[in-house]
Simulated assay, not measured.
Amino acid sequence: MGNVQTTHQATQPVITVPAHDQAVPAPHATVPSQQHQPPPPRQDTAAPTVKAFPDLRMRRLMGVSAWALALAVTGFVVGAIALIRLMGDMPGWFEPVFAATGVFGLLLIVAAFVTVQYRRIPWLLLGASSVTLVAGIIMLGNA
């Protein structure tokens, strides 16, 4: 037996009813041509992308951080030596000038972190802070 077609009028749609000898898939069964496939990837322009290299600003921040760490470690060592030497006989000008130089260098380092989004300003500020550290070392050697 084949398909049975019934039509009522010429304007009515044709209804096809399967015969009893044909296999009808269960409603929950999947037909091989209708297997679930993952949806295609979205084409959002706002979605974040994974980059192979860190962003330029992130590399700049890492460089500023490394230079600031070097200045901080060196400044700590120089400050510890100055503290030991202050327990002995030092000129009266040394303590306030040395402390002001250190505080000024520290402020330059903070300003370098604040301006890290700019291209050259953080490097200029860290260079100036390095100059103040060298000035502190020279003062410590001459006092």
Score class of each variant (00 low, 15 high):
Pro40Val: 07
Pro41Arg: 14
Arg42Trp: 14
Gln43Asp: 05
Gln43Ala: 08
Ala46Pro: 05
Ala46Cys: 01
Ala47Asp: 11
Ala47Phe: 08
Ala47Asn: 09
Ala47Gln: 07
Ala47Met: 04
Pro48Asn: 05
Pro48Ala: 11
Pro48Met: 04
Pro48Lys: 13
Thr49Met: 13
Thr49Gln: 09
Val50Leu: 09
Val50Pro: 02
Val50Phe: 12
Val50Thr: 07
Lys51Ile: 02
Lys51Gly: 08
Lys51Thr: 09
Ala52Glu: 15
Phe53Gly: 01
Phe53Met: 09
Pro54Val: 11
Pro54His: 13
Pro54Arg: 11
Arg57Glu: 15
Arg57Asn: 13
Met58Cys: 03
Met58Ser: 07
Met58Ala: 06
Met58Lys: 06
Arg59Thr: 08
Arg59Asn: 14
Arg59Gln: 14
Arg59Asp: 02
Arg59Met: 09
Arg60Gln: 10
Leu61Glu: 08
Leu61Pro: 02
Leu61Asn: 14
Met62Pro: 01
Met62Ser: 12
Gly63Ile: 11
Gly63Ser: 13
Val64Cys: 03
Ser65Trp: 03
Ala66Phe: 11
Trp67Tyr: 03
Trp67Cys: 08
Trp67Ala: 09
Trp67Gln: 15
Trp67Pro: 04
Ala68Ile: 03
Leu69His: 15
Ala70Pro: 01
Ala72Gly: 03
Thr74Phe: 13
Thr74Lys: 12
Thr74Asn: 07
Gly75Trp: 00
Val77Asp: 00
Val78His: 06
Val78Lys: 04
Val78Phe: 04
Ala80Asp: 00
Ile81Cys: 01
Ile81Trp: 04
Ile81Glu: 00
Ala82His: 05
Ala82Cys: 01
Ala82Tyr: 01
Leu83Gln: 15
Leu83Ile: 09
Leu83Thr: 10
Arg85Gln: 06
Arg85Thr: 00
Met87Gly: 11
Met87Gln: 09
Met87Tyr: 06
Met87Leu: 10
Gly88Thr: 04
Gly88Lys: 10
Asp89Glu: 05
Met90Arg: 08
Met90Glu: 04
Gly92Trp: 09
Trp93Cys: 03
Trp93Leu: 02
Phe94Asn: 04
Phe94Ser: 09
Glu95Pro: 08
Pro96Cys: 11
Pro96Tyr: 14
Pro96Met: 08
Pro96Ile: 00
Val97Met: 05
Val97Pro: 03
Phe98Glu: 01
Ala99Met: 12
Ala99Arg: 11
Ala99Leu: 15
Ala99Lys: 06
Ala100Glu: 01
Ala100Leu: 14
Thr101Cys: 15
Thr101Ile: 13
Gly102Trp: 05
Val103Gln: 00
Val103Gly: 00
Phe104Gly: 10
Phe104Gln: 06
Gly105Cys: 08
Gly105Thr: 03
Leu106Thr: 12
Leu106Gln: 02
Leu106Arg: 02
Leu106Ser: 11
Leu106Cys: 09
Leu107Pro: 06
Leu107Ser: 12
Leu108Lys: 13
Leu108Cys: 02
Leu108Asp: 00
Ile109Gln: 15
Ile109Gly: 11
Ile109Met: 14
Ala111Trp: 15
Ala112Thr: 06
Phe113Lys: 10
Phe113Val: 13
Phe113Thr: 06
Phe113Ala: 12
Val114His: 07
Val116Ala: 15
Gln117Trp: 13
Tyr118Glu: 10
Tyr118Asp: 07
Arg119Pro: 05
